[in-house]
Amino acid sequence: MTNATPTAQLSAAGVSIWLDDLSRERLSTGSLQKLIDEKNVVGVTTNPSIFHAAITTGTDYDAKIAAQAAAGASVEETIFEITTTDVADACDLFAPVAAATKGVDGRVSIEVDPRLAWDTEGTIAEAKHLYKKVNKDNVLIKIPATLEGLPAITATLGEGISVNVTLIFSLERYRAVINAFQSGLELAKENGHDLSTIHSVASFFVSRVDSEIDKRLDALGTEEAKALKGKAGVANARLAYQVYEDLFSTGRWAVLAEAGALPQRPLWASTGVKDPAYPDTLYVTGLVAADVVNTMPEKTLDATFDHGVVTGDTITGTYKEANSVLTALEGLGVSYNEVVALLESEGLDKFVASWKELLADVEGALATARTAS
């Protein structure tokens, strides 16, 4: 691995590199293809904030919005058309990767309307609608890991639809996500689906854990508290990998694997470093193990490609140390359960706010286009 780039080394160590971004500009200029060719990118994730930034920046979507306005489309219909078209085109771009990896990589994710995060039936209906509209084998439908989302995950997988479970912060919820995944495959099997064609990732968020916990450690201000800064995010993710290892080595899983099922891979999300005091590749090089995905903003991808130091597996064998970090935090009065509950709530609120801003901005653009015509 010494002669390869850091991103090639990361791939060789079993990490699939996905880009946490998508836009019409990335597709039309060839910049996304360049990342596939040069920086080992084998998939893409999107979210409401990414689409809001893409659609409201520049002029790439003006013609599409004008056409939608002329057709009398509503703002929801317009956004649905724009986002599903971008994702379908990205799926086509990644089709060779999907073919080469038998569908494990070459995946493009699109999220259900975040306002449905607390609506099980609404999420199921939207997941089916998105899947049908994109109409590509290598799409992943993103469903948040809320309590209401869990049965929607099971039902969607049961329809033979591949799923990216998002906004996971706690180990307890991650266990529930894996249970929902395995229940979904059991349902898909009952429904006569080929389990080998159903893929899933579980998006475990990393940097936001440090952001919130570091804030609390700063408030304590002791040397003991300062010594724990920047350690919780990686520790939490490493323990998630332990959960993955445990729950995909059970008798229940063996029955599904025998029927052709593939495990739901852990995906490290929110891997851009928020605190400039930390190494900019902290949540990449510290979370290397076989069969994981790391979805990176381009800044983190560039940093990894430029100076990431990949030393092989940095997760297995670290569980005792990771547990001691969380135990020490509890000992200082930093409540893990309180932090992860807050982060889920804030994460959902941010996506809903981005979606509402997108609706307002596109509504304005549609009105302008109607006036112009």
Score class of each variant (00 low, 15 high):
2 T>K: 12
12 A>H: 13
23 S>G: 04
30 G>C: 09
32 L>W: 09
36 I>D: 04
38 E>D: 14
42 V>Q: 04
43 G>Y: 02
44 V>Y: 01
44 V>L: 05
50 I>R: 03
51 F>T: 15
53 A>Q: 13
54 A>N: 03
55 I>L: 12
56 T>I: 14
62 D>T: 12
68 Q>A: 15
70 A>P: 00
72 G>D: 01
78 T>E: 07
86 D>N: 11
88 A>I: 02
92 D>W: 07
96 P>G: 10
99 A>H: 06
109 S>C: 07
126 E>A: 11
126 E>L: 01
131 Y>Q: 12
141 I>L: 03
146 T>V: 08
153 I>H: 05
153 I>M: 09
156 T>Y: 01
161 I>N: 00
163 V>T: 12
165 V>W: 12
175 R>L: 13
186 E>M: 08
187 L>I: 08
187 L>N: 05
191 N>L: 03
192 G>S: 05
195 L>W: 03
198 I>P: 00
204 F>Y: 02
212 E>Y: 10
216 R>N: 06
216 R>P: 00
221 G>K: 05
223 E>K: 15
224 E>H: 04
225 A>I: 10
226 K>T: 14
228 L>K: 11
229 K>N: 09
230 G>T: 09
232 A>F: 14
232 A>H: 12
235 A>L: 12
240 A>K: 01
250 T>I: 12
262 L>K: 15
267 L>E: 06
274 K>V: 12
275 D>R: 10
275 D>E: 08
278 Y>R: 10
278 Y>F: 13
282 L>C: 11
289 A>G: 01
289 A>Y: 08
289 A>C: 06
299 K>E: 12
301 L>Y: 07
303 A>I: 06
306 D>P: 00
321 E>A: 11
321 E>H: 05
328 A>N: 08
335 S>M: 08
338 E>T: 15
345 S>F: 04
351 F>E: 06
354 S>K: 05
363 E>M: 09
369 A>N: 04
372 A>K: 14
